[in-house]
């Protein structure tokens, strides 16, 4: 493999964007590098001339409560996510999904922004974020920052919609409501594939009696070319008068119906994935509902 010729470590977003702007498609953002460098080494990615390391930008790894949102800098590492008390209380589906990525050495450097930007439909961090109905802040050259729904940035497997001189700057989602809970789980295989066979994150909010699901978000990966929201399953849950086995089975059937499952060689058959939707959705919904029931009076979170 040939290698890059320049390595920049800007400390402000403006500096990073101007480097990207200046070098256009000769430059590439690097965060932890755990996807990018492997792709380059395996010659799956073109080696750029210039790498722009975004992890030294001030505030890029923050976790904060701002204006009623929980905000995460795009450069936050999976280790930071896993060990954040705020996120453990608020976003278990995210701490659980980021907590199973790689091993500690990878999680110490790999970032949530990289996981999302890499745009794989089964990326664990992405699936966790999706269930939180997260928004993403895109910073562009010339100071055009804007928030948009997470799902809007994916173009296809491994492809996002960012322009070469744009970067992911932050993610945000709403703090957990009363009687709400969320959870993540995945199925792996022990053989030679790093990505999960299937991963599901779910967030539910219960009614005052803690019986009915009033609101549900379900994210599944891989279940299509981009990270997938199982809207049919969400509706099946909220339509049910009670959260019971029948409601769960309806949600499973709806998810199985809606998901675009593939047989991927060496990873899983379509048939197996279909079965796993059932297994995981049952497990994850159970956990999320249990947490929602415990979360009768959510603890107040304070701005950090």
């Amino acid at each position: 493999m040939s290698r890059w010729r320049a390595y920049h470590t800007p400390t402000t977003v403006a500096e990073a964007l101007s480097l990207l702007h200046q070098h256009k498609d000769k430059a590439r953002i690097i965060a932890g590098g755990t996807d990018l460098i492997l792709d380059m080494e395996a010659e799956h990615a073109v080696v750029p001339e210039v790498l722009v390391d975004v992890t030294k930008i001030a505030g890029i790894d923050r976790v904060a409560l701002e204006d009623g949102w929980i905000v995460l800098g795009a450069g936050i590492t999976h280790t930071q996510i896993e060990s954040s008390p705020l996120l453990r209380a608020q976003a278990r589906c995210l701490t659980e999904s980021c907590g199973v990525i790689g091993g500690p050495q990878v999680r110490n450097v790999a970032t949530l922004g990289g996981n999302v930007a890499h745009a794989l439909p089964a990326a664990d961090g992405t699936i966790g974020l999706l269930a939180l109905e997260a928004e993403v802040e895109i910073a562009g050259h010339g100071g055009s920052n804007r928030w948009q729904p997470l799902l809007s940035i994916f173009a296809g497997p491994g492809r996002n919609r960012l322009a070469p001189d744009q970067m992911l700057h932050a993610f945000r989602f709403r703090p957990i409501a009363a009687r709400a809970g969320n959870a993540f789980d995945r199925i792996m295989r022990p053989q030679g594939v790093a990505l999960p066979v299937l991963g599901i994150a779910a967030r539910v909010r219960l009614d005052a009696d803690l019986r009915r699901v009033e609101d549900a978000v379900i994210a599944i990966g891989p279940a299509g070319p981009t990270p997938f929201r199982a809207s049919g399953a969400e509706e099946a849950l909220t339509a049910a008068a009670e959260f019971d086995d029948a409601a769960v089975e309806n949600a499973v059937a709806a998810a199985q119906e809606q998901a675009r499952l593939r047989t991927s060689k060496y990873r899983a058959s379509q048939e197996y994935r279909r079965e796993m939707i059932g297994v995981l959705l049952r497990r994850v919904l159970q956990a999320a509902v249990e947490r929602a029931r415990m979360n009768d009076a959510p603890t107040q979170v304070e701005d950090t």
């Binding site: 390595y7 470590t9 492997l38 790498l51 280790t79």
Partner: peptide
Amino acid sequence: QSVDSCIYPAFKAQ
């Protein structure tokens, strides 16, 4: 923090 130094660009450690 522990890292896999084989894929860790040296200039990250500046």
